[in-house]
């Protein structure tokens, strides 16, 4: 596989649009960016004079902070906009909000939105580059990239690893982005969740689907736990938290089935005692805190690669 030297698109809307070479380029660049975070002065002038707008239509503390930190470390000017009190609440359409922001000529818009496809619709009308920081239940590309970075850091590779992804599959954008990424780089993936939370057609992505946690964990090198929201109990998806934890909760006993040196990941925030036991979240398998730290480096890499040149 040849390494790419640039990203083909001026947006990062989803892992679906990237090829393996571009994924590799982002991860390699993130390595160099991670080193910046180890310096006494954690700043480089690379994006000096560039304007980045963080357009968050959905609340998010950790992803927003991670992006802000990444932008500031690259010396970009950053503006944050959350929807509380903004014109969106007053009924302004998505494209009108975007056009208003465009009038301020940002170079990059980092966008999180509750509706799948919102960044794609925006990309059709915006001049700025758009980074999808999570759209509905569709994709969360920088999360999958930082997950891949963390796996590579711990395991030295991605290809050929067995990765189990467990939880509320149908409502998870982290799942979809990770499915695209892991299948593109040659990992083997098994997904697991209650039958009521498995969306149809996943087998077409070349992954194994099971409702049996033990089977999913068997020989897994990487275990990714997804968050299960309490709303699911009301939507007739699940009878109770207790039953979910019994059938699908990750405990140290369950981890015995995984491969030796297996790692446990979680995109956060965790529901301790629902999808994951505290002894696992805080235990020797867990790389959850590494994920957070790597998020800044990966986001710096994406910002850098999308920001190049005036007329790119």
């Amino acid at each position: 596989m040849t390494t790419a030297t640039a990203l083909r698109s001026r947006h990062l809307l989803g892992i679906e649009d990237l090829d393996a070479a571009e994924i590799d380029l982002i991860l390699e660049t993130a390595l160099a960016m991670k080193e910046v975070g180890a310096r006494p002065i954690k700043k480089v002038p690379t994006l000096r004079g560039r304007t980045v707008v963080n357009l968050f239509f959905e609340p998010s503390t950790r992803t927003r902070m991670s992006f802000e930190l990444a932008e500031k470390r690259l010396s970009a000017d950053t503006l944050g906009m959350t929807t509380v009190g903004s014109s969106v609440v007053k009924g302004e359409t998505l494209s009108d909000t975007a056009r208003t922001i465009e009038a301020m000529a940002p170079d990059i818009i980092v966008m999180r939105h509750g509706s799948s496809g919102a960044p794609h619709q925006l990309a059709r009308v915006c001049k700025a580059s758009i980074i999808n920081a999570g759209d509905g239940t569709h994709e969360h590309p920088t999360q999958a990239l930082l997950d891949a970075f963390t796996i590579r850091e711990r395991k030295g590779r991605l290809q050929g690893l067995r990765v189990a992804i467990v939880g509320d599959l149908v409502h998870s954008r982290v799942l979809r982005s990770n499915l695209w990424l892991l299948t593109k780089v040659g990992a083997s993936v098994v997904v697991c969740g209650p039958a009521t939370l498995v969306p149809p057609g996943l087998e077409r992505m070349g992954v194994e689907v099971t409702n049996d946690l033990d089977r999913a964990l068997d020989g897994a090198d990487v275990v990714m736990m997804l968050r299960v929201q309490h709303e699911r109990m009301h939507g007739l998806f699940l009878p109770s938290v207790r039953e979910y934890f019994t059938l699908f909760g990750l405990t140290p006993a369950r981890m015995k089935r995984a491969a030796p040196e297996a790692i446990v990941m979680h995109p956060g925030p965790m529901n301790r005692g629902v999808e994951i036991d505290s002894d696992v979240a805080d235990g020797p398998w867990s790389v959850i805190l590494d994920q957070v730290a790597n998020g800044v480096a990966v986001r710096m890499a994406v910002l850098y690669l999308l920001a190049g040149g005036e007329d790119s």
């Binding site: 030297t5 160099a32 690379t46 690259l74 920001a307 190049g308 040149g309």
Partner: peptide, 17 residues
């Protein structure tokens, strides 16, 4: 990351770091 020509003209793809 410290070059002054990086963001200035369309040098094409970003240089590999």
């Amino acid at each position: 990351l410290y070059r002054d020509d990086l963001m200035r003209h369309a040098v094409g793809p970003q240089p590999v770091i």
